[in-house]
Structures are given as C-alpha cells and as structure tokens.
Nucleic acid binder design. Structure first.
Lengths: 242, 242
DNA sequence: CGGTATCCCCCGCGATACTG
DNA sequence: CAGTATCGCGGGGGATACCG
C-alpha cells in the first residue's frame, strides 16, 4: 500500500503491483515456464537474488504465484496462478510494443548472460544432431574486449555456459555483439550478416551451413520496428540545452 | 537510462519507460482524449503538477506525445503519437486485469476528486434533460466525516465541482462512499443498492427514477471479478509473523 | 490558468555477507 | 545450491513556493 495511487481506478491498482521494478519481468519468466529460483534468475541476470526473492514473496501475497517444496529434490518451485497466466496477452503485447517503439539499444543493454539465456530458449534442437552439440560464441565490442559463451545441446536438453564447458566446440560464431543482437532481434538478416562476413562461422562445412537454422532468433523478430532513428533523442537533447 | 535493466529484452525496454510510476496512467488519459495539462491532471488528482510535467516531458522524449502551443488560447496541448495510441490494447487489458485480480479497495483509494472525474466521463448526457442538470453527491465513511461534490451537465458539456457550483441541485445522492464505488465498479447492483436504501436519492420523482440511467458506471463494470476475498491477505500477514 | 524550480526526506534496491 | 539478512546511498517524488 505504500506506493498506492490513491484512486480505485483498476489500471492504477494493477500498476501498483505490476509497475514495480522487475515485477513484470518475473511474471514473464513464470509464464515462460520457469519454475525454480535459479531458473528464473538465469533469465534475469542483472537482478540481485535478494530482490528476486522479495518480488516472489510479493507475487505470492498478491496471489500471482505459489511456492511449494519440491517433491524429490531440495528447494522449492514457484508456480504461476491463473491470475498470473492471465497476464500473458499483456506481456506479449507489451513486448511487441517494445520491439516496435522502445528506445534503441545501447552498449549497456548487451548483457552476455542474458543473450546466452535467451538463445538457449530459442534453439531448434529438433534440427540439431543427436548426441551432444556445442556452439561457441565470441563477441567483441564489449568493455572487456571480448566475451565467450557456449550453448550445449544434448538430445534436446540445452545448457548455457559462461565458462568453458569442457567440451570441444562443434561450431563457433564470432561477431560484434551489438550487430549480432540486431540480427537476433530481426533488425538485420542473420544470413546476410553471415554472407557479408560481419558474423563469422568456424567449424565443419555441414555445421556452418546448418547453424543459421538452429538459431531461431527472438520470438518477436518478425514484428517490424516502427520507431524512427536517433533524431528524436537528439532533439530531446537540444530541448534540454534550451 | 538510469533505471535500465541491462538487457535488450523488448519487455524490459518497454517497462523501463512504462513501468515508471504514473507513466501508464498519463498514457491512459492521453488515449482517453485528454489534451490540456489540467484536463490530464483532473483525471490524476493525487499526482503533483511538477511530476506530471516531468512525465509529459519524458513521454515527449520517448516519442509518445507532442506538445504544441494552442492556436487561439493560452497554454499548450499534448497530443498522443501513434506509438502512444498503440498502447490502447495494453492499457485496456491491464485495466481489465486490475478489475479481475487486483487487490481489494481500501479507504485510502477513495479519492472523491477522482470519483468525480470518473463519473463526469461516464454520464449519459443524451438521456438527460436539455438545459442544465445538477447532480449532487454526499458521501460518508470518509475521514472528514462526509464529502460533497457536484456534476453539472449543460447540454452535453459536463463539469465536475468539488465546491458548491452556485446552482441548485436537481437530484442528490447520499451513500457510504465505499459502497457507492463498489456499485459504480460493478461489484454490486446500483439499482439494488438504491432499492435497499444503501444509496439514497432525493429530488423530484422523475429525476430519482431517471438518475440510475444517467450514471453509466465504470466502463469495466461488466468484467467479472475473479479474485477471492480477503483470506489471501490474512495468510500473507500470518506468514510475516513467522 | 499552466506550469517550473527547489528542497529534502524516505525507501528502493544494489552490494555484500552469511546460512541451512 | 537456494536463498535470507543487513547496511548504506542515490534519486524518485511529495510539498511548497514561485513565475509568466
């Protein structure tokens, strides 16, 4: 009640809960099927564990999720209630709006851990060879010079690694990270970027040919971006200078 | 960028802007057709003018609204862009979700100024007599003992007054405010509340008979509430006591 | 009326350390 | 691994005064 809007307007009552920082992203993970604490956390790498814990408690209090002990393992699972699942259309439309109209990406938005998680959920494992396949990524254009990460598919089970997984890579991808993410998000064509050499592949010819099929790209890649370029920010800057 | 989430996720980029306190409520007013500063402010009575000003500037910078000087009058008008108007389905669904699942109302949520604004937008002026009609409300159950307000319709133009408008009232409504708002929101039947005497009308028989038709109620009144009663809050309390 | 400038308090949340 | 406890700061935003 601390952050209440002082009006009974249903939109205000909804935003009192859902407008709190991180909350709708947690809801989104629950809707996406994440159940365990660290599973949710992996999709929100910049969120502190203590804050995630607080948000999950808040969501329980509001009746959007239930925490229950795991049957055979340690720890708990967090289950979305129907109140939570009914937010799916809202989350989808907000995300689509973000794809169309939200601000352009900045270098600070390029968290490799998030990209790794995001790619791990959008890998076409059915199109991949049986047994184990290791895809390595090496990104440049980041503050720490370059950054490596790995996706490991083992018969449909995908793991993401920020440290060397101990297996040899079957195919590797090298690119400027911003450019790669623009392709992943559908702002550029992945195949054209590869053809132009902006995204470089290494590995067997078969794997290099197959890789573009494995990477499904963002689920929103087909939603066209409508926001005009950077002129707007410039004009905002100008206004502030008087 | 201060409050960025550090990930390029479109939902995160959208919430970075829209999750800021008050922002989506301002967007909602723009979508509802409010154009002038004080017109927007009337629908958000608990928001300070300085914060509304800041939010409107922020929305301009983000490309959701445009400020332009009025042609013949003093001041400016604020126009929603298509990026803003595309949020209409999001706002509608969030409001509907709030009606179904958001927390129950508390006395602090009953701002008379908001109720007055809200009723002024949902008055069936076509069903009202031509010329001037004044409806008076007197609410009890508030901290300041009781609170009066007036709606004045003059040939389709509706004004809300928190002070006596200087005209005599044609019909007056007396009720406990929480109970009235529950009826307004569709949680109770307005007609049944009147019949049971929980909402009392005074005025000519014709006006008393017509008044329930004039008050259209919340636009979301027909959306059924699904949230269970207060047991949930109790269990949250209990958890916090250990 | 239609806003802007300033001050200041509070609490949200990030960081860190710790526990079963 | 799966969280919880604590501490400290930064800035969001409420209140108030002011201006064109």
């Amino acid at each position: 009640m601390a952050k209440a809007y002082g009006q009974y307007c249903p939109l205000a009552l909804a935003m009192e809960l859902l407008g709190e920082r991180w909350t709708l992203l947690v809801v989104s993970r629950l809707i996406d099927g994440c159940r365990r604490f660290n599973e949710i956390h992996r999709g929100l790498p910049r969120m502190s564990a203590s804050l995630l814990s607080a948000r999950l408690t808040r969501l329980q209090d509001a009746g959007l999720c239930e925490k229950r002990p795991m049957a055979e393992q340690a720890g708990h699972e967090y289950l979305p209630t129907s109140a939570c699942l009914e937010l799916e259309p809202v989350v989808m439309q907000l995300a689509a709006w973000g794809q169309r109209w939200a601000r352009d990406m900045e270098p600070e938005d390029l968290d490799p851990a998030f990209l790794a998680w995001s790619m791990s959920t959008r890998l076409d494992t059915a199109a991949m060879p049986s047994g184990r396949t290791v895809i390595e990524f090496e990104f440049s254009g980041l503050s720490r010079e370059y950054r490596r990460l790995w996706l490991v598919n083992h018969d449909g089970v995908v793991d993401m690694c920020l440290k060397h997984p101990g297996f040899e890579s079957d195919v590797s991808v090298k690119a400027d990270m911003q450019r790669f993410v623009e392709a992943w998000r559908g702002f550029r064509s992945m195949r054209e970027e590869i053809a132009a050499g902006h995204i470089r592949l290494e590995g067997s010819p078969a794997n290099r040919r197959a890789l573009p099929k494995w990477l499904l790209g963002s689920a929103l890649a087909s939603v066209p971006r409508l926001r005009p370029g950077a002129e707007r920010e410039v004009s905002a800057q100008l206004r502030r200078w008087h």
